[in-house]
């Protein structure tokens, strides 16, 4: 058995085979792997007795269920109105500069992926971004370099 098969097996055992457990199972894979590979989705389909097309169709609906390979740290910069007004473009430029990748790309060492996302619910402390499940608010260019510096050393 491969690692993925084992991971899926564990998750299906934990949450159950029913269709209503599909999201928790897929979320469990994302938590470990940061994205859903074709292999993982087919494995979920097999083990839960759902068609692979259904698994794929469901997964691709949700913006936090990436089916493209992602880095260990997925950065999501809020692009909705208040963050936009408070300078999210400068934040994005600072991130591109610090990581040496463009929006949507992953660093060659597979550590960071840089994405945008819709409203994170921190409009009163804009601009904001998520790194995996950690939130950073009231961002400045200096703050961005500091945060990325810390993550690079993790």
């Amino acid at each position: 058995m491969t690692d993925i098969q084992e991971l899926v097996g564990g998750l299906v055992k934990k949450f159950g085979h029913k269709r209503e457990n599909l999201l928790p199972v897929l979320q469990g894979i994302i938590e470990k792997e940061r994205s859903l590979s074709d292999f993982a989705m087919v494995e979920v389909a097999k083990q839960m007795g759902i068609s692979a097309a259904d698994v794929y169709g469901t997964a691709t609906f949700y913006s936090f269920m990436d089916t493209e390979p992602r880095g260990r740290y997925v950065i999501r910069v809020c692009k909705t109105i208040t963050c936009f007004m408070k300078g999210k473009n400068q934040i994005l430029l600072a991130l591109e500069d610090s990581l040496k990748v463009k929006l949507g790309e992953t660093t060659p060492d597979r550590r960071f992926t840089l994405l945008e996302t819709n409203c994170l619910g921190w409009c009163h402390k804009a601009p904001a971004m998520l790194i995996n499940d950690e939130i950073f608010t009231e961002l400045t260019i200096e703050k961005v370099h500091e945060i990325i510096g810390e993550y690079k050393n993790k």
């Binding site: 209503e20 999201l23 469901t58 949700y62 936090f64």
Partner: peptide, 24 residues
Amino acid sequence: FSGSGAYICGEESALMESMEGHRG
């Protein structure tokens, strides 16, 4: 129950679709 990044799931019937393991 965790969502997975979809504004429309705030609509109650989409929310329940999502909880049932479907597209929202």
